[in-house]
Design a protein around this nucleic acid. Structure first.
Lengths: 125, 125
DNA sequence: CCTGTATTTAACCATTAGGTTATATACATT
DNA sequence: AATGTATATAACCTAATGGTTAAATACAGG
C-alpha cells in the first residue's frame, strides 16, 4: 500500500468516536467483539462493521478462539499518522510562541503604566 | 465544540489526500483558491468544497483581498490530534522494542551455535 | 444431534462525501 | 456601464458511511 493510501485509511478510521473508543479500549488489552460492543448502544453488526474498518486500516488484528474473534490493537499505522501531524508542530508552536510573546509584551506595559486597578487585577474602565 | 467532535472533524478533514496536500502547501504560506487548485486536475468547486471542510475543521482561516479569499493554515487543531495519537506511542514503540529484543536474541544464538552455514549466511537445512 | 452463544453476512435505508456542470456573485479595470 | 477575473452556490449524480433487522454461520457442550 502506498504511504498516501495508508494515511488516508488511518485518518479515516480515526474519524469516528466509536472507533477511537474501541482503540482506546484495546490499548488496555485484547477483547472479544461482545466486550467491545458492550459500552455502546449499537447493534452488533454495527460494531462488526467498525471493526472491519479498523482491520482494513491495519489498526487491529483478529484471532480465533472457539467462537470468539479476539481483537488486538496494532498501533504501527499510528506512527505514520503521528509523523505526518508532527510536521506541523513547529507551526502550531510558533503560533503559541507569538501569543506568548504578545502576552509578555502586554504584561510589561501593564507593569510600566502604573494606573489604578480593580480588586481583580484588571484595569478600571 | 466538544473535544470528541473536534477530533472527529480534524481526522475526517485529514482523511483525504487532496486536503492533506492543501495543508502541506499552506504550511509554506498563504495562498489563493486558484493557487491551491492549480496542482489538481479537479474543478474549482471541488476545491472550494475541500476548503470548506478544512475551514469547518478550523484547519484554515480565510481573508479578503479584493476578489481573492486567501487561505491561511491554522495548525492549532493538529495539536489535539497529535496528543490523541501520542497516547499510543508507547504501544507502537513497545512493539518495535520487542522485535528488537527478539532480533538481538536470535543474533546471540547465531553467534553461540557455530554450525556450518551456506555462503549467504543462513543455516544449512 | 440439538441448543445456546458469538459473530458475520445480507438486504435495506438515510445521510454524507466527493465530484461534476452551469449559474451567480463580488470586485477591479477600462 | 461593460468586461474580465476570482470565487461561491445550486442542482445534480454516484458511491461510501453508518446504522438497522433478519438470517446465516461457527463452535461448545449436554
Amino acid at each position: 500500500m502506498l504511504a498516501q493510501e495508508r494515511l488516508t485509511s488511518t485518518f479515516q478510521a480515526l474519524a469516528d468516536p466509536t472507533r477511537r473508543a474501541i482503540l482506546s479500549r484495546l490499548s488496555q488489552g485484547e477483547a472479544s467483539v461482545t466486550e467491545l460492543a458492550a459500552p455502546f448502544s449499537m447493534s452488533m453488526p454495527a460494531i462488526s462493521k467498525h471493526l472491519k474498518v479498523l482491520e482494513r486500516a491495519n489498526l487491529i488484528s483478529r484471532g480465533k478462539e472457539a467462537q470468539w474473534r479476539p481483537c488486538k490493537l496494532e498501533a504501527a499505522p499510528l506512527q505514520q499518522a503521528s509523523d505526518w501531524v508532527e510536521q506541523y508542530r513547529a507551526i502550531w508552536e510558533a503560533r503559541f510562541d507569538r501569543l506568548d510573546a504578545y502576552l509578555k509584551e502586554v504584561q510589561a506595559k501593564e507593569k510600566k503604566i502604573t494606573k489604578p486597578r480593580t480588586a481583580n487585577g484588571r484595569k478600571k474602565s
